[in-house]
Simulated scan of single mutants.
Amino acid sequence: MFSTLHGMSRSDAQLAQEALNQEGSYRFPAFSASDAVTLGLSLRKRFRASHRHAKGKGLVISIQSIAGHPLFSCTVGDLGHFSGYADVGLDSWSCLEAMINAVKRTGHSSFYVEKGANALGKTPKQMGIQEVPVQGGAFPIWLENAPICPVAVVACYSGSSQDDHNLVVTSIRDYLNKILRNSEAGTSMPVPSIAPPPRPESRSDWNLPEVTTVASEYTRPESLYDGHDDEH
C-alpha cells in the first residue's frame, strides 16, 4: 500500500513546474485596491469553511503591492482563545513576511522557490535568496500586459506549505474566472456619461437694454474756438 502511495506522489521538480505554469496562467487584466480586498475576504471565507479551520488551525493573510504598501491584512483565529482553537502563533506574521520577501526577491511564488530548491538539493540560503526557510503560500500578482515584474503579492500562512499554496491559487483562479464571466456578460462598471458644456448665453438672455444712438439727437458740444473764425 505504501509503495502505491509513493508512486502516486509527485516529485519536487514536478510541483515546481506546476507552480511555474500557474504563475503564467493566472494573470490579471488589472489589479486595484478593491480587488485586493475582495480577494482577501475570499481567502478568509474559504479557510473558515475548511476542515483545517474546524480542527483548530488559524491563518494570517496579507496582500501587498510590490513596493510593500499594505492592501489587505487579516488574522483568522485568536492565539489566546479560551477554546484553544485557531493556533495563530506569535511568529506567524514573521513567517508570512519571509514568504512575501521571497516572492519580491525572485518574482516567483514561494511554493516554486521551495520546491525548486528542494529539487536542486539546496536551501534558500545556499541559493542566495534569504536566510530563513521558505514555504508555499505567497503568490505573485502579474498583469497580462506588464511582463516586467509583479505588481502585488498575495500570501497566507497556516503552517502547511501545500495547503496554503492551494488556497491562494484556487482563490485567484476562481476570482479571475468571475472577472471573465462578468466581462463576457457585459456587467462591468458603466462608463459615466459626460454632460455637454453649457451653451454661452446670448445677449437676449441677459435682458440688457439696447444702446442706440440717433444722429439727429446728437449735438456736438461747443468749443472755445467756435465763432472765432467770424472775427477774422
Rank of each mutant, 00 (worst) to 15 (best):
A33R: 13
A33S: 13
A36R: 05
A36T: 02
T38G: 07
S42E: 09
S42T: 07
L43V: 03
K45T: 14
K45C: 06
R48Y: 04
R48E: 15
R48L: 13
A49Q: 14
S50E: 04
S50D: 05
H51R: 15
R52E: 15
R52V: 04
H53M: 06
A54Y: 09
K55H: 13
G56V: 09
G58Y: 06
V60Q: 00
S62M: 13
I63M: 00
I63F: 01
I63R: 00
Q64Y: 14
Q64G: 01
S65R: 13
S65Q: 10
I66G: 02
I66P: 01
H69E: 14
H69M: 14
P70G: 04
P70R: 02
V76Y: 09
L79T: 03
H81A: 13
S83N: 11
Y85P: 00
A86N: 12
G89I: 03
L90E: 15
L90Y: 11
D91P: 03
D91G: 10
S94N: 14
N101W: 08
A102S: 15
K104V: 10
K104Q: 12
T106C: 05
T106N: 07
T106Q: 08
G107I: 06
G107S: 07
H108G: 06
H108Y: 14
S110W: 05
A119L: 03
A119D: 11
A119N: 06
A119Q: 09
K122Y: 10
T123P: 05
P124L: 09
M127L: 15
I129M: 09
I129G: 05
E131H: 12
G137T: 01
P140W: 02
I141A: 00
W142Q: 00
N145P: 00
N145R: 15
A146K: 12
P147C: 02
I148M: 11
C149T: 12
A152W: 00
V153D: 00
C156I: 05
Y157W: 11
S158I: 06
S158F: 05
G159A: 08
S161E: 07
